[in-house]
């Protein structure tokens, strides 16, 4: 199939589905609606005229819950008359203390450093775009965000806590801490953000915000 475009930038009106890799032409949709792939039905993009405000609000809420999830114990257990508790940071520290440097490092990155970075990046990107400043910085931050996004595993960690608790069920008395509930809210917010704000939308937004009047480069092929 052949398509006609005036210049390379016009390709922004096309989208390649990330699931089935068919080429789709972007169509205008109503505010708050979403566009689905015509082949496999996966969500291609959303339209949200107040994406910056929504994104900023969501990412700030997410960051608050992430900090809460790290500030208090996740789970407390009474075992054989003594009490033990665990938090994300104490778990990483105990792994490193017992000589598992590599696992400790992985876990630290996957459930602490990357989630924290992702939410700080969201806040920074949305604030920069709202202020209309720092075009190249936003670009670099967006690249960094898309590089680390596949590498955070807070949701998987939440399931792991549940599995670990069920394993301890007969042995000890288990109390959930504040952080456990905060972590659940954090994972819900995080899932909502990754589902409702695609990175492609952020790039489109970035282009709209910092639209410059320079000439578009000519087409490479004729």
């Amino acid at each position: 199939m052949k398509i006609r475009v005036k210049n390379e930038d016009e390709l922004d009106h096309y989208i390649i589905c990330h699931k089935c890799h068919t080429l789709q032409k972007e169509v205008p949709i109503a505010d708050g609606a979403k566009a689905l792939c015509s082949q496999c039905g996966v969500v291609l993009y959303h339209r949200d005229s107040r994406l910056m405000d929504h994104g900023l609000a969501l990412s700030m809420t997410g960051l608050i819950f992430f900090l809460l999830a790290n500030a208090f114990p996740l789970v407390r257990i009474d075992i054989l008359g003594s009490e033990r508790f665990i938090s994300i940071t104490s778990m990483i520290a105990s792994l490193i203390e017992s000589g598992y440097y590599l696992v400790g490092l992985f876990v630290a990155y996957l459930i602490f450093i990357f989630p924290l970075m992702i939410f700080l990046l969201y806040i920074l990107i949305f604030s920069l775009m709202k202020g209309g400043k720092g075009k190249t910085m936003t670009k670099d931050l967006l690249i960094l965000l898309s590089r680390i996004q596949p590498w955070h595993m807070s949701d998987i960690f939440l399931i792991s806590i549940l599995v670990a608790i069920v394993k301890l069920f007969g042995m000890a008395e288990i109390h959930f801490g504040i952080s456990f509930w905060a972590l659940i809210v954090f994972v819900l917010i995080d899932t909502y953000i990754t589902r409702s704000i695609h990175l492609g939308e952020l790039w489109t937004l970035q282009k709209q915000v910092y639209r410059s009047k320079k000439e578009n480069p000519a087409c490479v092929r004729d």
């Binding site: 257990i77 104490s90 778990m91 990483i92 017992s98 992985f106 998987i156 792991s160 670990a164 042995m171």
Partner: peptide, 15 residues
Amino acid sequence: MVDVFVVGILAGLVH
């Protein structure tokens, strides 16, 4: 990664 996390949690808790 579930199993690795579970072991990490249990090792941190039961000590």
